[in-house]
Amino acid sequence: MEMIWEGIQAAIHLLLTGDPEVLEITLLTLKISTTGTLISLLIGIPLGTLLALKPFPGRRFILSIVNTGMGLPPVVVGLWVSIFLWRSGPFGFLNIIYTPTAIIIAQAIIASPIIAALTCAALQQTDPKLRLQIRALGATRLQYIWLLLSEIRFALLAAIIAGFGAIVSEIGASMAVGGNIKGQTRVLTTATVLEVSKGNFDIAIALSIILCLLAYGATLCLTLLQQKQQGGS
């Protein structure tokens, strides 16, 4: 209990004093996770929409791959991304291994299947009569898709929450492709592991509390937006 209390005290001290290094790590974590989530939305929503609305050969197989990707271990993603971005890898010429960009790529790969699968599931559960009604009104293909996505907007917000939660809390991929470099790629999860390895459990607990507060704050904003829209519908 003493160790936990010391960690809580350290967290309060770091938050109140605005420790520059902790602030830098927190802002970098937020920047990387937000960017990774946005990219995963650009990939996951169109992919989920395609799988839900467009029958084509192999669709069920691809959907099974996407569903499997929801439980894809981050360390596996980190391994393969690092292989492709390594100096001798296919994209080594980009020189982005051990950079925030590499972490964003890995995190986008982690979150995209989650958002795609949840989008697909939500669209498949829409009322068939609604689809017929939209088509009967003469909506174009884009209008048809937009109206359906508007219908499942609450589920989409839930997908965003799930995707953001998955990447802000992961460590395997960030460590593999980012390297936990101070001032460059060190985020809250990798910094916490580093402090644990050094035996600084009070600082590790403090960082974990800050990470939880960050995740809760972002999730709270999305939840309030979701509930606000629901109340206004």
Rank of each mutant, 00 (worst) to 15 (best):
L94C: 09
F91D: 00
M70L: 15
I96A: 10
R60E: 15
Y98R: 01
A106L: 04
I105T: 06
T101K: 12
L72K: 13
I110P: 07
G89N: 03
V76R: 06
P100S: 05
N95T: 08
R60Y: 11
L63Q: 15
V66T: 14
A52W: 10
I97D: 09
K54L: 09
R60N: 14
G69P: 00
I109P: 11
K54D: 05
P90E: 03
P74T: 07
A108L: 10
P100W: 08
A102P: 02
F84I: 13
I103D: 05
M70C: 08
L79W: 05
I62E: 10
V76S: 07
A108H: 03
I109C: 08
A102Q: 01
F56Q: 10
G58R: 01
V81W: 02
I62K: 09
S64I: 12
G92Y: 00
Q107W: 05
P73I: 07
P73N: 11
V77I: 12
G58L: 02
F91W: 00
M70E: 10
P90M: 01
I109G: 14
S64Q: 15
F56M: 10
Y98P: 08
R60F: 08
R59A: 00
I83Y: 13
I65S: 04
G71F: 03
I110R: 03
L53F: 02
P74L: 08
S64E: 14
F56P: 11
S88C: 04
L53K: 05
P57C: 07
L85Q: 08
N95Q: 14
R59K: 07
V75G: 04
Q107P: 06
W80H: 12
L79H: 06
G92P: 00
T99D: 10
Y98C: 01
A108R: 01
A102E: 10
I65T: 06
N67S: 12
T68A: 15
G92V: 00
I83R: 11
I110Y: 01
Q107G: 12
Y98W: 07
I97H: 09
F93H: 14
A106K: 07
T99R: 06
I104D: 09
P57E: 11
G58F: 00
L72E: 10
T101H: 08
G78K: 03
P55Y: 08
F61H: 08
I62V: 15
S64A: 15
V66E: 13
R60D: 11
L53C: 04
G89P: 00
R59Y: 00
W80E: 05
I110A: 06
T101W: 10
N95I: 12
G71L: 00
V76M: 05
G71K: 03
A106V: 08
I104M: 07
P90S: 04
S64G: 13
P57R: 12
V75P: 00
L79E: 06
I96R: 04
A102S: 07
V77C: 02
I97Y: 11
N95E: 15
I96Q: 01
I109T: 04
I104V: 15
T99N: 04
N67P: 12
S88R: 05
F61I: 15
R60Q: 13
T68M: 15
I105Y: 06
